[in-house]
Design a protein around this nucleic acid. Structure first.
Lengths: 192, 192
DNA sequence: GTCTATACGAAGATAGAC
DNA sequence: GTCTATCTTCGTATAGAC
């Protein structure tokens, strides 16, 4: 079935990444999570673990960017609301046991695996760009949109971490509320 | 010299944690970073790695909470400004190679080391409480202060991650600016 | 594509000498 | 307090059979 196994492993890796961190994402874990065969790991990923992780980041990054681009908002707070809402569902679905896989790679990329940093950097950048465009389409100035997009991603990533640590959805409530207030203020031309 | 070695290892562990993540913080790394002797690890930490990590979180958590409590602000945006400024210095000092050690533990705590989650949860909570009190002292309502404190911590943690990924201080600029705007709005009684 | 076998290193942890 | 030696487990990675 073509690259079915490879795809399954990539998706599985993204999931394990979010729950166990970069170094916790061993081939054994991915295989256990996906039921993929042990014997063909290096057939599917000649580049080893880094290749698998890189693909997982790429996949997740693209799907989130896509979701942002699909937001049809007329008011700026709808942008932040829908963005956060998507991650809220993710948090619920994983029972507050997972953070963002891209964050996990960023945090886990020490001296080793530093080759993955460019991939996470451009993934975050793609989210920031997509969010900035979405804000701009609702009438926020370009400069404000860009800044707001960065704050939106940062607050979301932090909320995921706080939510996991405290096993609570409250960080999402706080961040969603405050981002919406910021977005509204930006449109009123009040943010400096 | 009493517990000099132990203390050095705890401080060193916090540093390694921030740069290499939880699983990257091996005894070997801590020993290399601090010059501590190999032979007495389990003399100083009978509880093994978890004990060392726990102490590092406790130490860092206390020092940051202390710093927050020392903020003397008359206007709410001074609270977020000074808080972010402290972390900005940290980012500069580590050459954008480190994130928050508490985040690192949260992200790295998978199935194993879940015993550390309560420690990180209460550490984050202590920062939230201290920030909420600081906001409240400047005239922000209790509910707004609490919510703002959560958003402040979340945005900061996210900014550290973005900054590391993209090797840029720009996330700090964005977050600092937007948090200040939110804080000002809260005092004006404009935040819903 | 998938298997087994295997090499190699690093990690956490313990025991006992000094 | 600090050392060395050792055990066990687990990780990445390779080789070669099926």
């Amino acid at each position: 079935m073509a690259d079915d196994t490879r795809d399954r492993m990539i998706i599985g890796a993204a999931g394990v990444l979010a729950q166990r961190g970069l170094q916790g994402t061993s081939f054994s874990e991915v295989i256990e999570a996906t039921g993929a065969p042990r014997g063909s790991i290096y057939h599917h990923f000649p580049g080893g673990k880094d290749e698998m992780i890189g693909e997982a980041i790429f996949l997740l990054g693209g799907s989130v960017a896509e979701r942002i681009r699909a937001i049809e908002a007329t008011r700026p707070e709808q942008v932040s609301d829908e963005f956060i809402e998507g991650w809220r569902e993710f948090a619920r679905a994983t029972d507050l046991k997972a953070v963002c896989a891209v964050s996990a790679v960023t945090v886990g990329a020490g001296a080793a695996a530093q080759g993955l940093l460019p991939a996470v950097a451009s993934t975050f950048a793609s989210w920031q760009d997509a969010l900035a465009e979405a804000y701009a389409r609702t009438g926020v100035t370009k400069a404000d949109s860009k800044r707001l997009a960065t704050t939106t991603v940062a607050a979301l990533e932090g909320a995921l971490i706080l939510a996991r640590a405290q096993q609570s959805m409250e960080p999402f409530d706080a961040v969603q509320h405050d981002l919406a207030a910021m977005a509204r203020a930006a449109r009123r031309g009040r943010s400096t």
